[in-house]
Structures are given as C-alpha cells and as structure tokens.
C-alpha cells in the first residue's frame, strides 16, 4: 500500500516538471520578453527605454537559461528560467503587475472560491446521483425517457444562459437576493445562494446522464441477478448493491476534481463579483498580466496532479484487488 503510494508520488514529479517546461516555453520562448513589453505598452510609439524599464521591473531582462556574465552559481540562478520557473516549486510566484505578491493573493482568494465551489460540488453530487438513481429505478418507462430528454435539453443550454437568466429572474424580477457581491462570514449566505444554485443546475444535465449510464451498466451484471434471485426488493438492490459497486467508476470522475475546487469557477465568480481565484484569473487575462496567468497554470496543474494521486489512493481503499497488483 505504502509502496504503491510512493510509486505514484514519484510518478507525479516528472509530470509537474513537464508542465513547468511547457508553461515556460509558452511564455518565454514563443514570444520574447520584448514582444510582450511592446504588446503591453502599446505597439506604436514605444521607446526602447520604456521596453527596457518594463523588463527590468519584472526581471525579464536576464538571459533565458545561462547567464555568462554572472559569477559562480549565479550563472544558473540569475536567469529567467530559474527566477520565473524553478522558483515556482518553492511557491514563490513573484509579483503581479499591480505590485502585489501573487502567493499571498492566492491564499486570501482561496476562501471565497471554496465558499462557492464546495457547496456546488457537494449539492451537485447529491442531486445528480439521486436523480440518476430515480431514472434507473423507473428505467425503460416514460418517466425515464422524459428524464433523459430533459437532461439532453439541459446540457444543450449554454452555461452563460443559466447565469444571465438566473440573475435576471431571481435578482432583478423577484428581488430575492442581491445581483452580485460578497461578504465575509455568515452574511455571505445571501450572496452565495444564487451562484450555488446556478452552479448545481448547470451541471445536472451531463452528470446525470453519465451516472445513469454507469448504473445501467452495473445493473446488467450477474451479482444483481443473484441479489434479485435471493428475493431482495428492487430498492435494496439499487441502494445496497448497485450504488456500492458503481463507486469505482464514480470515484474516477469525482475525486480528481476535489483539489481543483480551490481554483473556483471562472464564469460564476466573475458574474457574481466573488473575489476568488476564478475572478482573479479572469482579471489577469483581461489585464494581460502574464505573471498571474503563469502562476495559475502552475497551481491548477499541481492541484490536478494531487487529484490524480487521491484518485489512486481512494481506489485502493474502495477496491482491495488493486492493492495487490
């Protein structure tokens, strides 16, 4: 068990290095820092001095990989690659264009992101699994067909529609909750209730269909026939046998997202003015703040890799067969 986890952990390291190299290539090799400076300062009427100043402020004036002018270890460390990419492994992300420390910003913005993402995740999982079980319980009936059609229709609607329409109906017409905003502590519930509902409703269509397929696949297996032959009621078969055995495919899709909940949702946060990491990313994209986008790519990948690790570990807990492989 321990050896298995250690092996998985070691496997994650080259992947993280690969992600880091890809990001570095994307941000510094595809375009030179000069190009980026010219883009940010406006393409026309930009003086070489202004470009130089922009680069020095951000530490982009160093050589990419090898600084021949520096002494000793500095040859490797006084470079863009070391300063911008290697330092990320120590969670040192440098400063954003507005001068704030990116690392601290990320820590303070995680709270609001989680305040939306965790309820959406938990309620969404509960709602979709129950809905899928309901459809499977009434399988091959009109209710099942209607449910599937509803799912297809719901997943054909743009997520933007749920947000724009929900804000309009609930906040503007019914005046039930504020349109957008965020507060600390318990008062935040007023602001969070609508984004959470919209997040759950937006995900119902595709997830329910997915769970329904998994349950239907399980229900055709031999152990279900045995359980029925023993005279168990359909409800007992579904909840005790099918649901338990469907855990393995469900875990594959679910556990991997848990760490990425920290990242928040780009759309919901920006529409509802929630100061989380999602809106941080959107603001950075609009302001073309390369340092912030680069840091978010690294954090996002790190969390995803953690999610893969957790998935592997949860497999060993749920399915003992995997431990002995």
């Amino acid at each position: 068990m321990l050896a298995y986890i250690v092996r998985r952990l070691l496997y994650a390291i080259p992947i993280l290095i690969g992600v880091n190299l890809i990001t570095f290539a994307l941000f510094f090799v595809v375009n030179s820092p000069d190009d980026m400076a010219r883009m940010q300062l406006g393409v026309k009427r930009v003086t070489p001095e202004a470009i130089e100043k922009w680069k020095v402020e951000r530490g982009y004036d160093l050589p990419l990989f090898w600084n021949g002018a520096a002494a000793g270890l500095g040859k490797a460390t006084q470079t863009i690659f070391y300063g911008k990419s290697v330092r990320m492994f120590a969670f040192d992300f440098g400063r954003a264009d507005d001068g704030r420390d990116i690392g601290r910003e990320i820590v303070t913005r995680m709270g609001p992101s989680l305040a939306v993402a965790v309820p959406v995740f938990v309620l969404g999982l509960f709602a979709t699994v129950s809905f899928a079980l309901l459809l499977v319980y009434f399988r091959a009936s009109y209710l099942d067909t209607a449910g599937v059609v509803l799912c297809v229709a719901m997943m054909s609607i743009s997520g933007l529609f749920y947000i724009i329409g929900g804000q309009w109906l609930v906040s503007k017409v019914w005046h039930l909750v504020p349109i957008s905003g965020y507060a600390e502590g318990l008062t935040s519930a007023r602001f969070l209730i609508l984004p959470v509902i919209i997040g759950v409703v937006g995900g119902i269509g595709s997830s329910t269909r997915w769970y329904r397929t998994i349950f239907l696949e399980e229900i055709g297996k031999d152990y279900v026939r045995t359980a029925r032959a023993k005279g168990l009621s359909e409800r007992l078969v579904l909840f005790r046998h099918v649901l338990k055995n469907a855990m393995i495919p469900i875990l594959t899709g679910v556990v991997v997202v848990i760490p990425t909940l920290f990242m928040g949702s780009l759309l919901i946060e920006s529409f509802f003015g929630i100061p989380g990491l999602g809106s941080y990313t959107i603001d950075a994209i609009n302001a073309q703040d390369f340092a912030v986008v680069r840091s978010m790519v690294f954090i996002g990948s790190l969390l995803y890799i953690v999610g893969l690790l957790l998935t592997d570990i949860s497999y060993t807990l749920v399915d003992p067969r995997i431990r002995f492989q």
Binding site: V19, L26, M39, L266, V293, M296
Partner: peptide
C-alpha cells in the same frame, strides 16, 4: 492533460495575441 483546459487556453491565446 494535467494543465487545466481553460488556463492552458488562456495562456496560449494570450501568447498568440502577442504573435
């Protein structure tokens, strides 16, 4: 696959705009 899709797209589109 480890890089979240939206973020990879954001980074790549920003760079493409520069080009």
């Amino acid at each position: 696959n480890s890089i979240p899709g939206v973020l990879l797209i954001a980074a790549a589109v920003l760079m493409m705009q520069v080009v």
